[in-house]
Amino acid sequence: MNIEAIKAIYFFEMARMKRTLLQSVISPVITTSLYFIVFGTAIGSRINEVGGVSYGAFITPGLIMLTLLSQCIGNASIGIYFPKFTGTIYEILSAPVSMAEIVIGYVGAAATKGLIVGLIILATASLFVDLTIAHPLIMLMFMVLTAVTFSLFGFIIGIWADNFEQLNLVPMLVVPPLTFLGGSFYSIDMLPPFWQAVSHLNPVLYLVSGFRWSFYEIADVNPLISLAMIAVFLTLCLSVLAWIFKTGYRLRK
């Protein structure tokens, strides 16, 4: 293991992201606050409770997940896409580092920043609603696993993308609808059976449900199934990466 190299990449990325931390925190903080004002206060006052918790508290885990997913995918994809775009990737390709070490550096940094922003959103939420966290450690575990998995996913997007449009495609066009339809704002048993079935095809449902369980012990699906789904997605990302490294896809000519 080339620990020095991993450290170099990790801290280089953290420094890069620190420069943009403010702007990457401000926008989700404002958005989240707006959600609370609109959904939590304005609409939530008519919804009363879902599954025994106030509506504002109910939507908090979903909002955190939304931010965590888009942050991790965004940071990891730009992290590797940018050197590819400017050409500075030559240095990493000619350095005595394995692909695994490159991934640990980039994905580690993206996941770290995603977690930081996610926790800031959690803190913001606690200003608006009374939060109880039944299983803080499990909550953290869900966050870390999600951060790592979706940073890996973002890294893959960054390697695949050939232009900025492709780079933004997934975080902008795929993540928000999946999050909205993944039970962030409602419990899926409020839906007709057909749409309930469809919802089970949405990976974000499992994330939000398991994550919400760690707060309030209410869930759309069994938290163990949620965990298993994250593991499946993690394995999937690792397999794609293994293939990318073996073939040098879009990296080594």
Binding site: N2, E4, A5, K7, A8, I9, F12, A15, R16, R19, P83, T86, G87, T88, Y90, E91, I92, A95, P96, V97
Partner: peptide, 24 residues
Amino acid sequence: PQELTTDQFETVWNTVTFSRGVHG
């Protein structure tokens, strides 16, 4: 390298220090 490829937003010190680190 032949092309002038640089991290435009980094400082000279940081980019050179990074090179040493990434080589282990």
